[in-house]
Nucleic acid binder design. Structure first.
Lengths: 165, 165
DNA sequence: TCGAGATGGGCAAGGAGCTTGACTATATAG
DNA sequence: CTATATAGTCAAGCTCCTTGCCCATCTCGA
């Protein structure tokens, strides 16, 4: 809600703005850009033929990609209940993106891993993301874009990717 | 989905990384930070006594804050249907945050404006946001934080704040 | 080794918030 | 002045998440 326009003038939001004003102008910009990015990636993934996945699935793939994960780990990563994660996995199994395997060393758990289709979708998402970010380099330049990335890396400690609201 | 860990090494994501690698590492960082920020602001708003609002309400307040808006304008801003926006307004009316007034110059439309309680909540959200961003200045420094804000401003053209996924 | 509690996962029911479709009231164009 | 477009709402349905409950398996102390 800090993203409101509290009647700030142009000058107040410019380079000479006070710290407090910077703090008020940052949230709406960050959230707006994040929303645009999710939209762009989602569109790109659909254009590449994966029209039965939602953005939340991508966040699941991110956790499953390296070596798979248990349902509980996936739930923790997404910030939802185990039941919700379980239902999401069931949906992805039905659509052929992941499969459940016995978990080595714990017969209660199951290791959820990407299928070849799941990997293909992940690669499509990577290309869509790169395409979405490419114009940013044209705006900021390569160097400043790296700086942006580095700044974000220092500010984003959790690494958790959960639905925002 | 580009936010996956595609087996990149530490070196590949460092300062010398190729543009393509920067493009792949940016999305997860941006989205993770955005999620953290929304959470922090939402928590701060609740701590200040407004425990019956959700983040989406804050995005509505942002559009209503200066001079009010019609239901249709609010729907456009949030990226949802007019029906959804209408329901959200009805909820906010019931909770005392906004009120509907006749629209000057169009008897079909209604001008939705914040009540005093709505303004109080908006101010609380501003304080919560400033508090959430404050530690960022400690990490990056004031100057670099302004640079981050400026970069984001150049990249976020839409200004629309819609639920992300 | 065995019983008790903790943990991984799934089933079922319910709810919150969004959508589509239909409708009324008002505005605007020919 | 009729015809069409637009602002807003009502109703029904869908999707995804939640809570509550359950079973299977793990872990640990006696």
């Amino acid at each position: 809600m800090a993203w409101q326009n509290s009647g700030m003038t142009e000058a107040e939001t410019g380079p000479e703005a006070a710290p407090e004003t910077v703090a008020l102008s940052l949230p709406p910009l960050l959230l707006s850009l994040a929303a645009d990015l999710v939209r762009a990636i989602d569109d790109g993934v659909r254009e590449r033929g994966f029209d039965d996945v939602r953005p939340a699935h991508g966040f699941a793939f991110a956790r499953l990609a390296p070596d798979g994960a248990s349902v509980g780990e996936l739930a923790e990563h997404l910030g939802v209940t185990k039941q919700a994660a379980s239902q999401l996995v069931e949906e992805l199994v039905r659509k052929g993106y992941v499969e459940r395997r016995p978990h080595p060393g714990d017969a209660r758990a199951r290791l959820v891993v990407l299928t070849e289709r799941g990997w293909a979708c992940t690669r499509a998402a990577d290309r869509a993301a790169a395409e979405a970010v490419r114009p940013w380099a044209a705006v900021l330049g390569e160097e400043r874009l790296r700086g942006l990335r580095d700044d974000l890396a220092r500010l984003a400690p959790s690494g958790r990717l959960r639905p925002i609201w």
